[in-house]
């Protein structure tokens, strides 16, 4: 799905340091519109930092980072939704209210339009019976789906996910992966997924960027072809996995 226009995400010679510690050095990454790209790497390689930069949470870095051609350092820049490693729901709001937090500013949260949009998202993430529940009543997988719905409410062109399934058990994780693929297909959005799970990356993505070293640099970008849903045990995927694991030094 290569687009002729600008890339949805353009990272150019990005270097990010926290004080004297350099987290990322000279990162180049371009993600086309509608593409599903995973970023894998050991913990501490700066992959979460990369997402934080794209989400506009880090203003102080060298090089360029743009979403839809707009620099992420601007005031309202970055048309991105973000799913953090933890669901980060507001415990005092219901599921519906939490999703409504993601609604763009221009939409009046009390309007019928926004109510309908929240309703639709609640169903889409399969939580019809939990619209009025508080986050404390949800399982980990459900809470992470609310977090995803909140991101979708924002109607972003790019969805950033930071190890969203790492805290889930194996079975729930698979369900959530299928769920994410479904959303990606239906909504035609661009996805950047950070994960340390190589199998997950290969199973889901168009391309996998391997981050390594200290500070983190892009070691290799691996193309994974084939329609989704894929067969997890297909030889082609296993080959790709081994290629990525070699790049990671495993």
């Amino acid at each position: 799905m290569s687009s002729t226009g600008e890339p949805a995400v353009a990272v150019d010679a990005l270097t990010k340091a926290y004080g004297d510690t350099v987290a990322l050095r000279d990162i180049d990454l371009s993600v086309a519109e509608g593409e599903f790209v995973s970023v894998v790497g050991h913990s501490g390689c700066g992959k979460s930092t990369l997402l934080r930069v794209l989400a506009g949470l880090e203003d102080d870095f060298e090089g360029g980072a743009a979403v839809d051609g707009v620099d992420v350092r601007g005031e309202h820049a970055g048309n991105v939704g973000m799913v953090f490693q933890e669901p980060r729901l507001l415990p005092w709001l219901s599921v519906r209210e939490n999703i409504a937090v993601g609604l763009p500013e221009r939409i009046d949260p009390a309007s019928e339009e926004s109510q309908a949009r929240v309703d639709e998202l609640v169903s889409q993430v399969g939580l019809d019976d939990f619209g009025d529940a508080r986050p404390s009543e949800l399982s980990g997988g459900m809470a992470q789906r609310v977090s995803l719905a909140r991101g979708l409410a924002y109607d972003p062109s790019v969805m950033l996910l930071d190890e969203p399934f790492s805290a889930l058990d194996a079975l729930t994780k698979r369900e959530q992966q299928e769920f994410l693929l479904g959303i990606w297909r239906d909504r035609d959005i661009t996805v950047v997924l950070v994960t340390h799970d190589v199998e997950e990356a290969v199973y889901l993505s168009d391309r996998v960027a391997v981050l390594g070293g200290q500070p983190g640099t892009v070691e290799e970008v691996v193309d994974v072809t084939g329609e989704r849903p894929r067969d997890r045990s297909a030889d082609r995927l296993v080959d790709r996995r081994e290629q990525i694991e070699r790049a990671l030094g495993l």
């Binding site: 991105v80 953090f84 507001l90 005092w92 937090v101 924002y154």
Partner: peptide, 27 residues
Amino acid sequence: ENLREVADVYDLGRIETLQKVVLPGAL
């Protein structure tokens, strides 16, 4: 701080961040 970042990512204004995140969090 994690919840403040959520408010930041989704462009909640100052007032809305106060209402929805900061004040309930301090209750």
